[in-house]
Design a protein around this nucleic acid. Structure first.
Lengths: 342, 342
DNA sequence: TATCAACACGAAACCGTTTTCGTCTTTTTT
DNA sequence: AAAAAAGACGAAAACGGTTTCGTGTTGATA
């Protein structure tokens, strides 16, 4: 019933020529005569011959696959990055193998090992929370030492020498905070995560810098650090009830949504009584009511950039070890949760 | 600088034995003596030997990769399905290669061809809008005829004989509509997509069936068909202004969000004045204000089921062509956008 | 001591390509 | 007409493993 996949060997036997001749004929080699080429090509087309990718990979030591390891896929930002990677990679003839670390160090290691044994030509990845917490980067080190190209994005580490692409988180938080200050807000709450996330740390920095530049003291009471999973809405509520801020800056999308819910329940009007800005310009921010002003991280561009950097490395002949760090500029998308500038 | 990947050949040469001996020793074969095995295993561990996946794939004609082709990744439902697939597949030692068709027939074909030449052991896919519109399934037919296992999920077609997993969309819409009727709603607007989507058609059926079972006439004026991309909010607004429904059923998440926005802007209270139920229990519905009652499609379970069915086929010896269609039951998640049942 | 297992290992085929290097015709050159 | 040069093709190695089937050495058996 099933049409067996046809190989060079089959064609060779059927047409009574050698395998080498078939291979060359299909590549239109000058070595083979017109007649023979036409005969072979016609036969191949008829039987829908397609070379076996695995065999080619083995021969060329090139798989045309790129491995992507991300902490989570149910997260709009990562999802847009993947789309960017796919866009660029597919256009260049590469497949994308996606692995989820699920924020776990162990899964990240396992996934890397699965892929590092020939399955892929290079890695694009963002560190799991577990890895950032543990600060153990040996699996990355091993891979890069084997000469497998790697691009780190968003959640990166300075411990590893490789290409990186990230957004200017300090600047993003700075601009957002400044926007709130310019509106006249003075009591700006910061909803952030625990310290080990490189991105959160930078966003905290930007927040503080803006306050200082504005001549304001940084009040640690205005900062709430939340675990990134299993958000405790009551905790947010207590916090906001206690400090009664006139603005909220959130280092991600979801904390901002929760914050808005809490203050709306209290009867406050957003943005009249309180302004809200979140990081990550995702669907939640866009479709919330009121829609939330956000710092866009340009995930798709990030993905494309990462893929471009990786494929350049993969396809470059020279082994020179020079690594670039591309820093993307964030954009503040103004929506309904902040006061309109005039 | 870079540690070259070590192969059986290297070990063999270094330890002055044959490649076969090394291979057997590393598989703990009884053929090889204790001493030799220990020596070889120690050496392999020391130099961190890992077999090359590509070579093994070529030999075994098994890649341990499964190909997933979906229309869009920036879509919570597909994202949860991928997570489910990853979960199951990874546990079974499989990698997941994700390709995006971007709702385009051509891209779907290209992606399938890229993967069908040895890169994967089987496909899991959901049809692109382009394919459903064009009703051309030859690329699927070719692949299945080659004996490559395939599982279709959510957006399926009866034209192809293969395993399928979908949710009972008729039932989902039926239950949702019934819930609205039970609340006392009688003028239920349906926000749906153009007809060629198999899922939308079934949801429309469920909606109509519930109305009929309740003794109500189906009023075509209450149904708005929207293109699935580039949503025109003004169109929704006109529609809702004209018919002034007391409930809205949306075949997806986003139309529901838009609908709620429109009626809220009109000053209506959800759910006091109007109830809203949407399909696809995603983040938007969950975090909207009020949160939206939704028909959950259990994407993660769907992904796991699909992966399980596929891997069973891939690993089964017998070539019997029997195909199953697994139908998952949807669940109505009651939230704030509908009236509480007592 | 001749015979025969058991033991421990190696040679070689194979998976499906690509590619280098012959080799045998046929044609061109002198 | 002999030598050189194309022309057209095949053999074989290589990629990195697995596996079947020898084969040479031991020790036990008769």
């Amino acid at each position: 019933m099933l049409k067996q996949k046809i190989t060079l060997k089959h064609i060779a036997k059927e047409l009574d020529v050698s395998i080498s001749t078939v291979s060359k004929a299909l590549k239109n080699s000058e070595e083979i005569s017109r007649d023979t080429k036409e005969k072979i090509q016609a036969f191949a087309k008829l039987y829908n011959y397609k070379p076996n990718n695995i065999a080619i990979s083995l021969k060329n030591k090139r798989t045309k696959n790129i491995g992507v390891i991300i902490p989570d896929i149910v997260h709009h930002f990562f999802t847009t990055v993947i789309r960017g990677i796919e866009n660029y990679a597919n256009a260049k003839g590469y497949n994308v193998i996606v692995c989820l670390s699920d924020e776990s160090f162990d899964k990240e290691v396992i996934n890397m090992e699965m892929l590092a044994n020939g399955s892929i030509d290079g890695f694009i990845m963002s560190l799991s929370a577990g890895t950032e917490k543990k600060k153990d980067f040996n699996h990355l080190k091993e891979v890069t030492e084997q000469g497998i190209p790697m691009v780190l994005f968003d959640r990166v580490t300075s411990e590893i020498n490789c290409d990186k692409v990230l957004i200017d988180d300090i600047q993003g938080a700075y601009v957002a905070t400044k926007k709130l200050l310019d509106e006249g807000r003075r009591k700006i709450a910061l909803l952030t995560t625990e310290d080990f996330f490189s991105v959160s740390m930078n966003r905290n920095k930007g927040y503080k810098k803006a306050l200082k530049d504005f001549g304001l003291e940084v009040n640690p009471d205005l900062v709430l650090k939340l675990p990134f999973m299993d958000i405790d809405e009551a905790k947010i509520e207590d916090f906001l009830n206690q400090i009664e801020p006139d603005a909220i800056l959130s280092v991600n999308e979801i904390f901002g949504i929760y914050g808005m819910r809490v203050v709306q329940r209290k009867g406050l009007n957003v943005p009249k009584d309180i302004s809200i800005i979140g990081f990550t310009d995702g669907l939640l921010a866009k479709h919330a009511n009121p829609s939330i002003t956000s710092v866009a991280q340009h995930g798709e561009l990030m993905g494309e950039t990462a893929a471009k950097m990786l494929i350049e490395k993969v396809e470059s002949e020279n082994e020179e070890e020079t690594y670039r760090t591309e820093i993307l500029q964030p954009t503040l998308i103004e929506r309904e949760s902040t006061l309109n500038q005039v």
